[in-house]
Design a protein around this nucleic acid. Structure first.
Lengths: 417, 417
DNA sequence: GAAGATTGTCAATTTCCTTGACAAACATAT
DNA sequence: ATATGTTTGTCAAGGAAATTGACAATCTTC
């Protein structure tokens, strides 16, 4: 119907199919046989065989130990990623912390660590800290630097994919247009992928979490701020310049309170971690009875409110329910606009659980059109705090493996625009 | 990176390339030569030649009369669609009207007509009326029914692409799940495409209007109601079940007035044609001085308000500016979420012009994140009231031509999932 | 143990693109 | 006017990858 970006010509057909087979093996839970792959990709067994044997020869894929079968016939030889091919690192840079995963290319986590880190310190100190974290983690885990094939990094801001930098990020002062990807690539001498953290959350939950295999998925990162990662029609959606999914600064009340971004009535000013803590402080100032009064006013965090709510504190429960309703309004907007099958809610605030999630569900059902509301499943992140770091791992593996099968032979002379 | 839906294999390579060449010729303003096509598609001149000559042999493409050139060398033979290959009909079914275009496959409009029609009358009477409109139009224009290759239809509701019906449409009472596409297909014995009207607006403006060639485009249909059609990464985005882009019922003020859909504070209740008329009536009831007082209160329409505003009426100008601001809030949400390059505003209310558009632009700049706001161009529909009907024409032509080159030979045995 | 079913592989064939050469048709310089 | 250079489009030969159809391998069931 419309001009497509993929222009297959015989020269790149095998390449495209090889990438497709590789991803099928990577993301198909439970193992795929050659025949499975042939059916799903719509090409013949013979063609698949040739591709799979290439991948095995490269050491990227292996045959899994045979498993009990159901039907008569020659047992299928299931395929899986060869974990010994190499390792990758995934790093999620948050507003107040930095978390790191080391995994092999089969996405099995080998090491995990999280340290506090204040992103407002600016790019140079933080990237130095990141470098030290990597070195320490390798030392502690006994994993060699040579085994690391690629590194994936996530940051909480809109990303320009071409330059590998953040552009006008609301919560990363001093980082505007700093060449993050190039800096790390040069320092590490490895391929580096740079993505928005919510985007990575979507990838992580899609690959190994609550949104497995869904083709229309939105991941909502509800933490200090609020962001969304969008997986539309099976592909990460970044928009024209890479800053799609910025749900946090959508207006839900034009006359609402001022947000840190300067506008009025953004969701983030109602439903984010900061907003929850502020609501508690205001209520206490007004003299409302609550268990939270025992905490010094200025030290109350969203986590304190969540704990109080779990212990039965009425005010805390009310604050969290209201935050959920406000987030629900914004998510209802996403549902109306994107018509997804699944919404995965992650980030720190989502850890609160049903006290937060139920109001979200209720509000979405109430405030989005039936045609879309009926279809959508709203759930918490299965990977918990690790969604984004896991997404970074997935991206790093993609980088490593797809580059490997591409460079196997000299790059095609066919220009893909 | 992610499993793609297109699985090229040698058997379908030529088919894919043929479709790509055809669309390149269709949508490239000013004519393409074989060499141009080769460069843009990344395949060789020889391959393009074979494809183009096939298309010429089928009677779908022709060589344009030679034009003056700039550079030395053999003059390029420009390609264009052969208009005599056949004709199509595009129909836009609105809430209160029905408009029809007859065009040849080169998308040159041959006949145009618009009649009043109340969509609330229900599917059977309206589809009968549509049939009569087609017959009358053919008779009046002297175009033969035999020349009509396909028909495109647009309706103002969320569409389930699989069944060709609308699902829980807010403004089409009685149409829920009525098999519109099958009914028309059977009656006419021609391929029929059924799309959402805003979707078609996006297609129309993308192909021949204000959004020519843009890859990230949102078309906002601001009429009685408000809807959006989304073109993301060069492709129409329909969502998981075809009901994406329902911007009209996004909440911009949670405590706002009740909307016809049952919720509170939807954009449509602030910025749609109905809302504009209602605001005027309420102001008059309050006794505010305005030229509109000369019109019977219950008969005031958005168009009356627009005319009064143009004549300098302060109240009318204020109402329209406020409606624009409210629409701007919703569009700012789209800009934050989708990060498009272009927003095209069409529909009846958009005809008001800058009085409406300027507040929209101002509000979007104010209420969306700088990273996305900087990139976006906001403009009125170039095709005016015809955007959607033109989109229906484009879809009908797509149906006719792509089917023609596909059925040229027996369909590929390759299953594309 | 035989029959049936499913999986994976092989050789021959087909399809379509690429390669490299060449003719056609123009502009410009001499 | 002629020669040179440039761009466009076509042709035949060659190559890459998928398809086809047959067949061996390996299981379940009768």
């Amino acid at each position: 119907m419309f001009p497509s970006l993929d222009f297959p010509s015989t020269a790149i057909v095998k390449s495209v199919n090889k990438h497709a087979v590789l991803d099928l093996i990577r993301f198909h839970g439970g193992g795929v046989s050659r025949v499975d792959a042939a059916q799903q990709l719509g090409i013949t067994r013979a063609a698949i065989s040739a591709i799979v044997n290439d991948l095995i020869a490269l050491g990227i894929v292996r045959e899994a130990p045979p498993r009990p079968l159901r039907n008569g016939g020659r047992p299928a030889r299931l395929l899986e990623i060869e974990p010994r091919y190499g390792n990758v690192i995934g790093i999620d840079l948050g507003a107040s912390h930095m978390s790191l995963l080391i995994a092999n290319v089969a996405a099995e986590v080998l090491y995990e660590r999280e340290i506090p880190s204040d992103i407002t310190a600016g790019p140079q100190p933080i990237l130095d800290q990141m470098h030290h974290l990597v070195q320490e983690s390798l030392a502690q885990s006994g994993i060699s630097w040579e085994s690391i094939l690629a590194i994936g990094v996530g940051v909480p801001g809109p990303i320009d994919t071409a330059s590998g930098a953040v552009i006008s990020p609301p919560i990363m002062p001093g980082w505007d247009r700093y060449p993050i990807r190039e800096t790390l690539k040069t320092r590490w001498g490895r391929p580096v992928s740079l993505n928005n953290d919510a985007e990575l959350g979507a990838i992580g939950e899609w690959a190994f979490g609550a949104g497995r295999g869904e083709r229309f998925l939105a991941y909502i990162k509800a933490g200090t701020g609020i962001g969304a990662g969008l997986l539309l029609d099976g592909k990460i959606y970044r928009g024209a310049t890479g800053s799609a999914g910025e749900i946090g600064h959508i207006t839900i009340d034009e006359n609402g309170p001022q947000c840190s971004c300067g506008n009025y009535g953004c969701v983030e000013a109602y439903a984010g971690g900061k907003a929850i803590a502020r609501a508690a402080r205001e209520a206490i100032r007004k003299g409302i009875r609550t268990q939270l009064s025992s905490i010094p006013l200025e030290k109350i965090t969203a986590q304190d409110v969540a704990e109080a709510a779990r212990r039965g504190d009425l005010l805390a429960q009310q604050i969290i329910a209201q935050a959920g309703e406000h987030l629900g309004i914004a998510i209802a907007g996403i549902v109306n606009l994107f018509n997804p099958t699944t919404i995965v809610i992650g980030g720190g605030v989502a850890q609160i659980g049903d006290l937060y999630l139920e109001p979200v569900r209720r509000t979405v059902q109430k405030r989005s059109l039936p045609a879309s509301a009926r279809m959508v499943r709203i759930t918490t992140a299965l990977l918990g705090r690790r969604s984004s770091a896991m997404g970074a791992v997935v991206q790093a593996i993609s980088l490593a493996l797809h580059q490997a099968i591409e460079h196997e032979r000299p790059a095609s002379h066919v220009q893909i625009v």
